[in-house]
C-alpha cells in the first residue's frame, strides 16, 4: 500500500541526505613547506587549499622573529582559486616565521590555522 512506499522513500531520502556535508577548506600544501628550513628567503608565501576560496575574506598574517609582523602585499588567488598567493613586501631576514591563515571557502565556510618555517641564517 502507498503508505509503506512513501515511508520507505522518506527513509531513503533521509539516509541519503547524509552526504550533504559542507566541506571545509584546509591547507594541503604550502611554499615554504611546514616546518621547513629554507636557505633563500622567499619572495612570496603560497598556501594551497583543498577548496576554492573567496579572496575577499581570505588572508594570511606572517609573524617573524620577536613577534614582528611582516609587511605583505595584497593576496591573490591562483590555481582555480585554490591557492592563496601572499607577496612579501620586503625580504625576510634569518629566523623563525609563523603564518596564520584565515580563509573563506566558496561554500561559505570559514577556517583558519597556522604553520611555521625558518629562514636559514
Amino acid at each position: 500500500m502507498t503508505h509503506s512506499r512513501f515511508t520507505a522513500l522518506l527513509l531513503v531520502a533521509l539516509l541519503c541526505t547524509a552526504g550533504r556535508a559542507l566541506a571545509h577548506a584546509h591547507l594541503t600544501d604550502s611554499l615554504p613547506p611546514d616546518k621547513a628550513t629554507v636557505a633563500a628567503a622567499p619572495a612570496e608565501i603560497d598556501l594551497h587549499f583543498s577548496e576554492e576560496l573567496n579572496i575577499k575574506f581570505s588572508d594570511a598574517k606572517i609573524t617573524g622573529p620577536g613577534k614582528a609582523s611582516v609587511k605583505t602585499g595584497a593576496p591573490v588567488l591562483v590555481d582555480e582559486g585554490k591557492t592563496l598567493k601572499v607577496p612579501l613586501s620586503e625580504p625576510l631576514g634569518p629566523g623563525a616565521y609563523s603564518v596564520d591563515w584565515r580563509v573563506l571557502s566558496t561554500d561559505g565556510h570559514k577556517s583558519n590555522g597556522n604553520y611555521s618555517f625558518t629562514v636559514k641564517p
Binding site: 512506499r5 520507505a8 522513500l9 531513503v12 541519503c16 552526504g19 550533504r20
Partner: peptide, 18 residues
C-alpha cells in the same frame, strides 16, 4: 520514480562527498 531518483542521486552524492 521518486524512490529511484532519491536512491540514485543519494548514492552519487555519497560517492562524491563522503
Amino acid at each position: 520514480v521518486a524512490v529511484g531518483l532519491v536512491i540514485a542521486t543519494g548514492i552519487a552524492n555519497t560517492i562524491l562527498v563522503v
